[in-house]
Structures are given as C-alpha cells and as structure tokens.
Write a protein that binds this DNA or RNA. Sequence first.
RNA 1: GCUGGCGUAGCUCAACCGGUAGAGCACCUGACUUGUAAUCAGGAGGUCGCGGGUUCGAGUCCCACCGCCAGCUCCA
Length: 605
Amino acid sequence: MDLSKPLDHDGQLSIFTTKSPEGLDLVRHDAAHIVASVVQRLYPGTQVTIGPTTDDGFYYDFARDKPFTPEDLEAIERAANEEIRKDLPFSRSEVTREEALALFGELGEKFKLEIIEDIFAKGARSLSLYRHGDWVDFCLGPHGPSTGRVGVIKLLSVAGAYWRGDHRNAQLQRIYGTAFFTQKELDAWVTQQEEARKRDHRKLGKELDLFAFHPAAPGAVFWTANGTMLFTTLQAAMRRMCLANGYIEIKTPLLYNKMLWEKSGHWGKYRENMFLILDPEADPTLPEEERASISLKPMNCPSHHLFYEMKRRSYRELPLRLHTQDVLHRNEATGVLSGLTRVRQFQQDDAHIYLMESQIADEVARLTKLIAKVYDAFGLSFVAKFATRPEQKIGDDALWDKAEAALRDALEQTGLAYELKPGDGAFYGPKIDFDVADSIGRKWQLGTIQLDYNAPERFDLGYIGSDNASHRPVVIHRAIYGSFERFIGILIEHYAGNFPVWLAPEQARLLPVSERHHAWAEEVAGKMREAGLRVEIDRSHGKLGAMIRDAQLAKIPYALVLGDKEVEARGVSPRKHGTGKEADLGLMPLEAFLTQITAEAEIPY
RNA sequence: GCUGGCGUAGCUCAACCGGUAGAGCACCUGACUUGUAAUCAGGAGGUCGCGGGUUCGAGUCCCACCGCCAGCUCCA
C-alpha cells in the first residue's frame, strides 16, 4: 500500500524508504508505468499489457505491429526522464468490475480487459487504479507519491515475448529498463554490469584460449589444450570421488535403435529434442520421425536400464551405482544456444542408482553430503529445491504420489532447508535440484537428484530378494556438476579465469632472466613435471617485465623467476598471480616450492 | 522455433552521403641478453560470414541463407 491509501484495518506497518530494497522495487514499478505512458503517447495505437519489476529493473510488454527500433528506445528514454522532471503525482482510486471494463474497453485495451476478467474471476471485489498525468493503469500498487521520486530511468533492450508466456499466443514487444534514485547509483550499476561482462566465460574462453566454436558445428565445443585440461581434470576428480563412494563406471553405446526410445518413453515425450538418423531405405514421402530408425542418445538413463537388465540382479548388489560420462546430443532450438551454458553436445557426470525402497532415505542423505562436499570445494553456496510432477509426464498418479512422498521424506530426514518448485519435476519423476550461487551472486541450477518409479516398470527391472522372490527396484538419477560444459562455463565466471592451482591448465610458468639461465629452467621444469605438475618455460627473448606481464594476463597461478641468484641457490623466486608487492614470494629452495605447489595441486574432494 | 540487433586480419576495433580496406596487439625476421605488468626496427597477413540482386561502381543499399548476441518458449 502507499501513502494515498486509507488504513482500513490493523496489521504490520513498515515504511519503505530510498534505503530499502523494497523502495527501489517500488520506483521501478513507477518507472514501468511512466515508460508505458510515454510509449502510448509517442506511438498511438500501441496496446499495453503487463509491466512487472525484475531483480535488476523492470520490463513492460506492448502489443504493436511495428517493432521498436533502438532509436525509438532512446526517444522513449528521453521522454520518460522528462516525465520524472514534471514530478506528476500518482493518484490511487478504486473501481468495480463494470467500471474497469468500461474504462479499458473505451481505451481499446484488449489485453487489459482479459486481465480484468481474470482478476475478478479470482474473487477480487474491486480494482485499484493508478493515474499520473492523464495516463491510467490498474495495479496492485503501491506506488510512490509522484514521478519525481523515481530519479532516473535507463532503457536497456527490446525483445520479443509471448502474451502470457505461451508461444502459441500473440507476440509482444518487451522493453527492458531499470531505474535508480540517483544517476550515481545508475552509474555504479552500469560499471558493475561491465565488470560482470569482463568475466563472461565466452570472452575469457577466447582470451585464455580454453575453447572455441565453429559455424559448422553450432552448439558443439572445440576444446583447446587448455580447456581439455580443465575438462579432464574435472572428469578425473569426479571419477575418483565416485569410485571412493561405491560407484562403478561404465560406458555404453551412443546410437540406439528407436525401440529403446519407444520403451523409455523418450520417443513420445522427447523426440523433438533428439537427433534422428534417417533410414535411407524408408519411403521419402513419410515424415522424418517415421523414417528414423536410430537416434543419438540425449540421456544416459535408458542405456543404464538396459545394462541393469542384462543380468539377473540380487538384493545383495543394491544399491547398484552406475556412473557414466558419455557424450550426449540434444537438438536444442537454435535461439537457445549460448556459449558453454547451452550446447547441443555435452557430457554429464551422470549416475543411476538402483536400490530398494528401504534404501532411499539413506542414499539421498549420502548424495546430499557428496554434493555439498563438491560445491564447498569450489566455494559455491547452494539451495535445494523440491520439484513435483509436471504436466507432461509418464506414469499414473498413484506412482507419482508414492515417488513424491518418498523423495520428500528422504529430503526432510537430511535436515536440509529446501524450497518448493511445483510442476517442475522430470517427466519420469520428482527431483531435488541444487541451485548454486557463484562469486558474483548469480544463480545456476547444477546438481539434481531424481527419483524414478516409472523406468523400472517400463524396463521390467527386477532383483531377487532375500525371500528368493523377484522385486522391483527404484532408480535415482543424479548429477553433481550437471554437465561438464555448463559447469566449466560457470567456473570460468566464478573464478573470473583465475583458476586454483589444481584446476589451472598451466600451473606455473618458468621465466629465465636470460639465455644462460635456460639450463636451470629445464632442470626445474623436469623436476616439476616429474611431480605431476603442468609447467611451461617462457623462451621468448623479452624482458622479464614482459614475461611477467604475459604470465599475469594468462592468469597462471605461479610465475617463477630464474636468474643468477636462483641458479646459484638452486632455487626459484615464485610470484603468485595477482598484483602488488605481496605477489613476489622471494627466493626459496626448489624443494620448498615443490612441497607448497604440490599441496595446492591436490584435488580438494 | 519467435522478436530485435550484429557479422571487416588470429584478437580488439576503424573506414563520411555508395568511390575500390586501415590501426594496435599477436605472428615472422633481425638487433638487443635483459631482475618482477609491454625493448627497438622491418615484414607478412583480409573473396569485408555465404549466395543472389540494384548500381558505372557495394564493406556500405535490397533479398535469401548461415552464425553470433539480448530476450521469449524450452533446458544439463
């Protein structure tokens, strides 16, 4: 509520000021109204829809045939900021359903009429209107007292959006913007955005020579030697952890006859995301999906189920934990591909755990511990989210009731705090998603624990129990990194390219001061490589300063200066990555440095 | 897939109203033999994303395609 609304009941009253986050959210809401009002003035005939605030600002969706150009955006921004200078008061009033329909009907606002009907259909008694100048919108509020309180509005971009988020509906034009109380706060935000762009994994991937893309293979990564080192180091770390925790690693085929996908349910629910291989013998007039006889796997689960059922299983084998890092292909829509975070070919640190129902709680507890251990090692904090059955699903409701109850109980027993995501489960079962926050506070969905009662039915999986009778196991799908590709993308941004020693593709660079120091550099490199470390010698004839600079820009954890003093002492002078005097660690014996860096090169989980 | 924007040397970016492509870094060669964030000089490098069209003439204007970016829908 705002200052113009009468207090009509008792309750908690807290006051929002320019200092509180709610205050900022409020002016952004004001800003959305202001932008909508000037858009309708500058571009008559444009219809308004909705204009909510976001974490970073606000947007407003408009229906207009002609798209807004970047020049339009500038004009709108200028006009919006003039409205602020006019300091027009916001005034609030309430109307009935009929009054609201009459008002917006007269204005010709089709989308608003639809929203009004919805609001009253949900049981509202009246609608609150907010006016500033001669423009009116209905809105829950609250709003500030006048447009002058907004400070400054900056428009960011135009994008297409669908009415009510459904791609079958009308395409609208969404104008993104943000607002702040002062220009100074806006400038600070802009600077912060620029800083975030500097650590964009696509930019750093190029600068640090980690990976590349080619138009001939959109959505598929070329990993350079450096990037491959990141990839294989993470693979090895996950392998080691899995082996230490009762998993076995297997490899399965990449291509399957479609009979597998029909059995798993993917053919019905997931086919449009699968790369199909057409049968050359098939009738060319048939639609593609009928000519396809085989497909690249988009997930590992069906392969694992086949693997499980190839042998008769005993209850003594359970939980049977299968780990696989195979290559997967998903035919993602062109518009969604983005750097490493959304690709068509990727590898997951995937596992499927076959177990008895009585083992679910214990296994979920073990898994959450493993997940926490891994994220901790990277300094990533996380939140657990419990996701229930989606609209597109397989299996009957009784099975879903059972699966959701079992997974939820298991989650509660871990004592972990969690949030709910209704309808966000996988099509075969409910799941716990782990959303991590990186060093600049961005959220990513990474790990997942999914409980599946459907697959064992479809694949007719069984095990022989202690009673010598056949029983149905349950399956848990789990991943911790999620996919190597996305995880590496996130790590690049999280570390801003400054990888810890154990991950860094080049862990140390040796800088001989002049050619007569190369022999000692070779010897140091040999010793370090024997210790399993990744080192290179800078053989350029540049000055030391230039070599230091190159090593710094390449974000190599240690640069070792090797000159007369070091040769004499059979030592090295390490300079830790980073600026300032503390970066130079001074002359130390090679053995001492080896002990230090070897410890830092250990896998931390 | 949809809406909008963009695509010039390995990278970052110039090139007016349409007049025939330029810089820095990187690379190669030579000189310099260097002590904690850039040594100097020279050289080489481009079918302006691809294919059509308009024009005396297209990097520049138009069309189609490919790719990338910001979103939407979807998602590891």
